[in-house]
């Protein structure tokens, strides 16, 4: 049997009981939990609201039918969904190679003591903070009118590429920088060239990090309405894009358009489309988190 309750401490034995958690620390923890709760509650509230509002219209017609101004019960977001897929795929096609190669140049080749390399770096950091509407103006002036691409998928994806390029570059650079110098030294000391080292060691080790950053960048692009609205308010499109020179609409613009209609049926339609957009975003972000947890190297 284990002896129960010791009534008094034998003399000379140090006591280990402390004074418990200090009050200040308890307040601090409470504060942390409260801030977390604010975020979670807002998200939960938002989700509940759109699901409840959009529930009547979360049906198959949402992705089989095209928009319809006259009869909201027959209207769907088909052209917006396919438009979003088109625009985001092309955006990825343009900005991922450009962004990754720029990051490789800046991390592996650029001599940081040269003023032009430092200027490029500062520029990229600042570009990441430029409001998206400014990219819309750029797209309208230079790509749509200047290059004459008009209100097309091409213009939209080029504009969005410019918008997220700085984010792709910055996150790719971080992923490349996280590859330890000792790996590069090992490769070079075996007689590999600089390019072989980058191609066979640095890039493969950096891919998970770069993919994570790129997906997060693309999910920012998917939700953008402002720059695309500027490109010509392409809100009523009743056909799928057929190519890069096709006119198009995307989910955020379609949502914007329905919300601004006065009839309640259109508002429900907008909520249903928001649910679709959120689901796409959640899937992309989960993919990013999964990639980060499963493939990132711990050195």
């Amino acid at each position: 049997m284990i002896p129960t309750a010791v009534t008094s401490d034998p003399p000379g034995v140090p006591r280990l009981a402390g004074r418990g958690t200090p009050l200040r620390e308890r307040f601090f923890r409470l504060g942390l939990r409260a801030s977390l709760a604010v975020g979670v509650l807002f998200l939960a509230g938002l989700l509940t609201y759109v699901v409840v509002e959009g529930w009547p219209r979360l049906d198959a017609k949402l992705w089989t039918n095209f928009p319809d101004i006259i009869d909201p019960s027959r209207a769907g977001a088909r052209s917006a969904i396919t438009g979003t897929v088109w625009v985001i795929s092309l955006t990825a096609l343009y900005c991922l190679p450009t962004g990754v190669l720029t990051a490789v140049y800046l991390e592996e080749y650029a001599d940081r003591d040269r003023w032009w390399n430092r200027a490029i770096e500062i520029n990229i950091q600042n570009l990441a903070a430029v409001p998206s509407i400014v990219y819309g103006i750029l797209g309208l002036g230079v790509i749509s009118r200047g290059l004459g691409f008009g209100q097309t998928v091409l213009t939209a994806s080029l504009t969005l590429s410019l918008l997220v390029l700085p984010i792709v570059i910055i996150s790719s650079r971080e992923a490349i920088r996280a590859v330890p110098q000792s790996i590069r030294q090992a490769s070079l000391s075996l007689g590999a060239t600089r390019w072989q080292t980058i191609r066979r060691q640095v890039l493969p080790a950096a891919v998970p990090g770069m993919a994570t950053g790129s997906i997060l960048a693309l999910s920012r692009a998917i939700g953008e309405a402002a720059p695309l609205l500027l490109l010509g308010g392409l809100t009523f499109i009743t056909f799928n894009p057929t190519g890069v020179h096709s006119q198009f609409t995307v989910l955020p613009i379609q949502i914007f358009n329905w919300i601004s209609q006065s009839r309640a049926e259109f508002t429900a339609l907008a909520s249903a489309a928001i649910v679709v957009l959120l689901v796409i975003l959640l899937l992309m972000n989960s993919l990013a988190i999964w990639l980060r947890n499963h493939f990132t190297h711990r050195w």
């Binding site: 330890p180 000792s182 790996i183 030294q185 090992a186 490769s187 000391s189 075996l190 007689g191 590999a192 060239t193 072989q196 066979r200 060691q201 080790a205 190297h297 050195w299």
Partner: peptide, 26 residues
């Protein structure tokens, strides 16, 4: 003239690929 470093720095690849790396790039 090869080099071995202070901290073991194998590539984050298989044992086989570590050995094969130098010959492959060469």
């Amino acid at each position: 003239i090869g080099m071995v470093f202070q901290k073991p720095n194998p590539f984050p690849k298989s044992v086989y690929d570590n050995i094969a790396y130098g010959p492959r790039v060469g």
